[in-house]
Design a protein around this nucleic acid. Structure first.
Length: 472
RNA sequence: GUGGAUGUAGUUCAGUCGGUUAGAACGUCGGAUUGUGGUUCCGAAAGUCGUGGGUUCGAGCCCCAUCUUCCACCCCA
């Protein structure tokens, strides 16, 4: 039984080089989240399946990973169940748990469960993997990390504005040029009402979401296939053809939707948001995009999606406002808004654009050569000192040939070697080798600290770190 | 879930019409150099040709199934 080991479809191992890059992304995102006063939480990888079902639409239910009950999972079934139940009903009988599909629904569940201990508005961030049983392809994985920020318990559009700022800050730091697309579900609901097809809002939004992909004719024919009347479709056209700048668009919408209460509410929300954004300078492009629909069922207000301008990989960040997500868990009238950064896609974008150049260096600054048992005591003393000074240092674990130890340092791009063999120990000094110049010299133990400050810090020190990591 | 492509040392890829023992580069390891890396030179290890069946005297190559990865759709981060 020694077949080659493998990992499940759509999952990946991350090797050291990849992890350094990934952590760079996580660190930066986390710092911006903290800057705006968000605090971390984590929730379990698995949730009760009933928590997850029905929150993401039919498509979402299909993509949930279900966890087979432990033990005799068939004991809850009788013969009739097995032969007559359709598979989805059957699976919810034998699978009581599932892997989380996103971080928003578990968060809503968390808020309801911990309502007594939470002070509202509650601003939290959460960086964890999620799982979807999707068919994998480029930019689409079955296990991937989401970085969520949400504020729950506040209706203010200031929260939407804050999220836009966060998006802008993060992508500015990561040097990804992006366009932020904004829309509002209430406006979409208003449009559906205006054309007399209120109950078809999902079909309508899904179809117009494809506008820039398949063109206006195909959208119209798709709507017609879905059973929308000719009249409704022709009434929809002015919305599909909306153009001009943001205030033009909002003006037109205002006229067209003057009869619709929800529609007008949505327009006001958009207006408020765009006023906040106003003339503040953002590095991202911002665009009011009526064709932005987003599939997740629970959005009720603003919807936000971010795309890279240089790499075509779908959205790298998305989110919106949900007015009653906690309602399904028994806590009514609490509105929240949040966004989710797709770390894996951000990684793909940055990799493709070679934006990780700054990270080429090693994580270790100094390697202490291992000369053997007798010298190790002396080396460990040096190691401790350097660690106390905050210098990233490692001692080679085996007394391997010097050649081996040096080429290890070389492959890890460690810039400094410290050698303390018999001669050095007798003279109470250390030999230092600079790997890039090849130059080496002996220094006494006393000036070790000075040496660190003058040379290591300058070669590998804080100045070489990306500016945003300097605080660390 | 639907349709299409793909798979050969650790990695990137050759491999002719189906014909003897499947090759290269890079990487790894060893040596030239027992206390000095990168460059150079020499050498070695490394493969059940994704997996399982089938056709054939003979299969990396042809056929079937299956898995992986990739692409389009659906949907999404």
């Amino acid at each position: 039984m020694s077949s080659k080991p493998s990992i499940p479809k759509g999952t990946r191992d991350f090797s050291t080089k990849e992890m350094l890059k990934r952590e760079y992304i996580f660190e930066n995102i986390k710092q911006v989240f903290r800057l705006f006063g968000y605090q971390p939480i984590e929730t379990p990888a698995m949730e009760n399946i009933t928590t997850l079902l029905g929150k993401y639409g039919d498509e979402g239910d299909k993509l949930l990973f279900r966890i087979l009950n432990s033990g005799d999972f068939l004991s809850s079934l009788n013969y009739d169940d097995m032969t007559t139940l359709e598979y989805s009903k059957l699976s919810s009988k034998i699978c009581e748990k599932g892997l989380r599909y996103d971080l928003t629904v578990p968060f809503a569940r968390y808020v309801v469960q911990h309502r007594e201990e939470i002070v509202f508005p509650f601003k939290r961030y959460q960086i964890q993997p999620v799982w979807r049983a999707d068919r994998p392809q480029k930019g689409r994985y079955r296990e991937f990390f989401q970085c969520d920020v949400d504020v729950i318990g506040s209706d203010s559009i200031l929260n939407e504005y804050e999220l836009i700022r966060i998006i802008d800050d993060i992508f500015k730091i990561l040097r990804i040029s992006t366009v932020i697309k904004i829309n509002n579900r209430k406006v979409l609901a208003g449009i559906a009402a205006y054309i007399g097809e209120s109950d078809r809002i999902i079909d309508i939004t899904v179809a117009i979401d494809k506008l820039d992909k398949i063109g206006i004719e195909n959208v119209n024919s798709e709507l017609s296939t879905k059973g929308l009347s000719e009249k409704a479709i022709s009434n929809l056209q002015p919305f599909l053809q909306l153009n001009g700048n943001t205030s033009d668009k909002l003006g037109t919408l205002n006229r067209l939707l003057s009869e619709s209460e929800v529609g007008k509410k949505g327009i006001t929300e958009l207006q408020t948001l765009f006023t906040y954004i106003g003339n503040r300078s953002l590095s991202c492009d911002i665009e009011l995009d009526l064709t932005l629909a987003r599939g997740l069922n629970y959005y009720t207000g603003a919807i936000i999606e971010v795309k890279s301008k240089d790499v075509n990989i779908g959205s790298i960040c998305g989110g919106g406002r949900y007015d009653n997500l906690t309602g399904v868990f028994g806590m009514e009238g609490v509105s929240g808004v949040g966004i989710s950064f797709g770390a894996d896609r951000i990684y793909d974008v940055m990799n493709q654009l070679n934006l990780f150049d700054d990270l080429k260096g090693s994580s270790t600054d100094v390697l202490i050569v291992n000369f053997g048992e007798d010298e190790t005591k002396y080396s460990l003393k040096i190691l401790d000192k350097l660690h106390e000074m905050g210098v990233k240092t490692e001692l080679f674990p085996d007394p391997a040939k010097l050649k081996k130890q040096l080429s290890y340092a070389d492959s890890k791009k460690i810039p400094f070697i410290l050698m303390a063999g018999e001669n050095e120990i007798n003279n109470n000094c250390i030999k230092v080798k600079n790997m890039s110049s090849g130059e080496q010299k002996e220094i006494s133990m006393k000036v070790l600290k000075k040496f660190v400050e003058n040379e290591i810090r300058q070669t590998k020190g804080i100045d070489s770190l990306p500016p945003n990591l300097k605080i660390l």
